[in-house]
Every structure is written in C-alpha cells, then in structure tokens.
C-alpha cells in the first residue's frame, strides 16, 4: 500500500524529466507527437545547442563563478565558524545573532543596493559583479560553528602545548575534523550558485557573460531552432550536471540538512 502510493508520487516527480529528455531527442519538427519514445531518435538539438548558442561559454562562466564563490565561502565560513566556536570575546553572541539574522533578509530587498554599489565600482556585466554578493554566507558560518563547537577544547590545548600556532589549530586540527560539515557547505553553495537566477539576471547584460541559467532563460529562436526539442535539450543540459553531482553526494546533502539544525 505504502509502496503503491510512493510509486505513484514518484512517477509524478520523475515524469517531467522523462518528458524533457524524450522531447529533446525527438527529431526536428516532431515535438508535438504525444509519445514518450521518440519515433526518430536524433541528437540534432544537442548539436545545435552546443554549436550555435553560447552554451559552452555559459558553462564556463557558471563554473568559474560557482567555484570561486564556493572556495571563498568554504574558507571564510570555516574560519569564522572556528572563531565563534572556540574563542571567548566580548560581543560574540551579538555578532553571531546579527550574522544569522541576515539569512532573514530576502534577496529582493538587497538587489537594488547591490546593483547601485556594483554599478558605481564599474563591475556591471562582469564575472566579478556576479560573484561579489555571494562571497560570504551566513548559512555557512552557522553550519561550521555548530560543528566545530563539538570538537573538544582539550584537543586544541594539547596542540597549543605542542607549539601549534592559532591558525595552525584551525587549519591542521579543526578543519580536517570538520570535513563532513565542510562538504555540506561546499555542496550547498555550489548548487546555489549553479542555479542562481535573480542576481545574475540583473547584473549581466551581454550574451557572452551570462551564466548558464540566465542564458537559457533568454534562448532565442535561432538557438532553439524554433523547436521545443531545442528548448528541452537546453533544459536537460542545464540540469543534468547537478543531478549527477546529487547522485554522488546524496548522503552528504541529506545529512547536511540535518546538520544545519534543520532537524529542529
């Protein structure tokens, strides 16, 4: 009984993906055929998408942005998390709560000041401009602090007696132990940047600076061949890399949601 219900729901979840793939393989001009298996199997939509559009360039832009932002978030989140978890100083709690409260501010509220600031510096329509607001993450600081709080202080004291510097304690003792939490921060940040839409949409104008998602949202008839098969192949190309990442890191992602205190 449970299995029947779950399978039914699972079918509803997976079907749009099957339909997307099926349509993307249907030969040009046959997208309106209602059949899950293409009559004529064809790769032409993928070929056109990868040659006629700037899609390879958009992939590159997205990977650069996501990789730099993820490295930055991972480093600064774990450093800040370490300081918040392992040092006593005045105003610690206040600062931590302030940082956490930024999670509550909706992006829609921030894009206008971001845009004005980035425009004044002259970073509109550049990868730096896309990157800038995403270099730090309150969520990352929160996850790292929670996890590092569980590392026993005796371990750090032992390190201090052995003459390890304070940064060494962070880099060589705490960071390796916090690897599971770090994996969570890395995956969620990368995923967030890969799929980000609102900010890159605003900050980038020219075609070749688009991220993958924004580029796809603006596909022209030239690139799709005025054919839904073309659009579906674009959608497949945009989502499949993250699906593969997800299959590999499924455990981390699910555990990450528990780790970040989402468990309640």
């Amino acid at each position: 009984m449970q299995y029947a219900l779950l399978a039914l729901g699972g079918f509803v979840m997976i079907f749009p993906y099957l339909w997307m793939l099926s349509t993307s393989f249907k030969a040009r001009g046959t997208w309106y055929n209602i059949s899950l298996i293409p009559e004529q199997f064809s790769l032409e939509h993928y070929e056109r998408m990868l040659s006629a559009s700037l899609l390879p360039r958009w992939y590159l832009n997205t990977i650069i942005v996501a990789a730099i932002a993820t490295a930055s978030v991972a480093f600064f989140s774990s450093l800040a998390g370490f300081v918040f978890a392992k040092y006593e100083f005045r105003g610690r709690e206040v600062m931590f709560v302030l940082i956490l409260s930024t999670i509550m501010i909706p992006t829609e509220m921030l894009i206008i000041p971001w845009y004005v600031a980035i425009a004044q510096i002259g970073w509109i329509d550049s990868l730096v401009g896309i990157l800038m607001p995403g270099m730090l993450s309150a969520f990352g600081v929160f996850v790292m602090r929670q996890f590092m709080g569980n590392i026993p202080n005796e371990l750090l004291d032992a390190g201090r007696i052995d003459g390890v510097s304070e940064f060494g304690l962070f880099w060589r003792v705490c960071l390796p132990m916090a690897r599971p939490a770090l994996a969570v921060v890395v995956i969620f940040t990368f995923l967030g940047h890969w799929n980000d839409f609102l900010w890159p949409l605003i900050v980038v104008n020219s075609d070749h600076m688009q991220t993958l998602q924004v580029g796809l949202s603006r596909l022209t008839t030239l690139e799709t061949g005025a054919d839904w098969g073309g659009t579906m192949s674009g959608a497949a190309l945009a989502s499949i890399p993250m699906l593969i990442v997800f299959l590999f890191f499924q455990k981390h992602i699910v555990r990450g949601m528990a780790l970040s205190g989402l468990k309640g």
Partner: peptide
C-alpha cells in the same frame, strides 16, 4: 524513493519552468 522526491531541489528553476511551460502548452 527519497531520491526521487528530492530531485527537483537540485534542478534549476529555469529548466523546471521550461519543462512545465511545455507541458502546459495550449493545443499541443
């Protein structure tokens, strides 16, 4: 099953929007 239900979370909104726009298409 957990994986099946979770997949849309890792899919970009743009891809989902295009697929459903296609499914919602009038006439075809």
């Amino acid at each position: 099953f957990r994986m099946l239900y979770f997949i849309p979370f890792v899919t970009s909104g743009v891809a989902i929007a295009w697929v459903f726009k296609f499914l919602y298409l009038p006439n075809f």
